[in-house]
Design a protein around this nucleic acid. Structure first.
Lengths: 152, 152
DNA sequence: TCTCGTATGTCAGGCCCCTGACATCGCTGT
DNA sequence: ACAGCGATGTCAGGGGCCTGACATACGAGA
């Protein structure tokens, strides 16, 4: 107690270096930065790519459904959609056939952009996964899911 | 090629469920949300907590040094510091003794807030780590570091 | 039928974080 | 001595994400 250095409050976090949460944040940040950098060449943000990717696999989803699928609020997704729609990467009917939800569809340009972006993202992921010792990937994935489940 | 479903572009991402990057993003998001929620009771954001935590372990750091330590830009850290200073959780000399950098110090209230926040964060981390099978924590940490290294 | 709850789209305001730009200050090589 | 360079603090602008709030549209139950 004679020096502040290396002294953590009781029940506190302690050293950051050994913290799983800290390492998790760092890894996620590194991933986001790498994706941001590589996607910038395509004029796409990570959020926009996520939207396109989900839409490519599940065409016709509404704003709210896309928001749930990408884990953002529908307000946020609304803005993302507006940006992509302004660039003619997707279309929405002007009026809803039922209720207020309108199905979102990729345009041809949207599918092209998705294909390019998907390749870029896959390359980054490949670079990351390649750094993991062989055979540990499955366990790593499982551990990540355990974390999500414990926190959700 | 007869159906869009389950058909990934060549070289694309493919299914999201098996993607390490996707799982990593989910885990980091879950962590951030959990921290946000629990820190809200203390009127602290995650960024503010990060700043306090680093400052507690390394008092006297300047704005730019804190920014580097928490992996944000100095502009961002500048705003975080201003918020914390307005609440009297830290102090900065009005004028620099040399150059332009001014050492930041926690106040007594700042140390109290840090102690509370650190306990909250430790509890969240504990909840997360407890979900990992025994003995796998070290390897998980190592894998996360491998990811960071491969991307940085 | 009419009301209530639920889901949806949207606007407003705010926080976090970024890039770009600028002024200031110390150091260094000429 | 001085011009150039690097680091620092700060302002301006923008994007992403959030919560809160509101209006609208559908469906279930009294």
């Amino acid at each position: 107690m004679s020096d502040d250095r290396d002294v953590a409050p009781e029940g506190g976090v302690g050293d950051l270096e050994g913290s799983v949460g800290y390492a998790l944040k760092l890894a996620a940040t590194a991933l986001r930065v790498a994706l941001d950098r590589d996607l910038r060449a395509l004029e796409l943000t990570v959020s926009q790519y996520s939207c396109l990717e989900v839409l490519g696999q599940r065409p016709g989803l509404s704003n709210s459904e896309l928001a749930r699928a990408t884990f953002v609020t529908r307000q946020t997704m609304n803005e993302v959609l507006r940006g992509l729609q302004a660039r003619d990467l997707l279309t929405r009917p002007a009026t809803a056939t039922s209720g207020r939800s309108r199905p979102v569809e990729l345009t041809a340009a949207g599918r092209r952009a998705l294909a390019e972006a998907s390749a870029v993202v896959a390359a980054v992921e490949q670079r990351m996964v390649a750094a993991l010792p062989a055979g540990r990937r499955a366990r790593f994935l499982e551990d990540l899911r355990h974390c999500v489940q414990a926190l959700g």
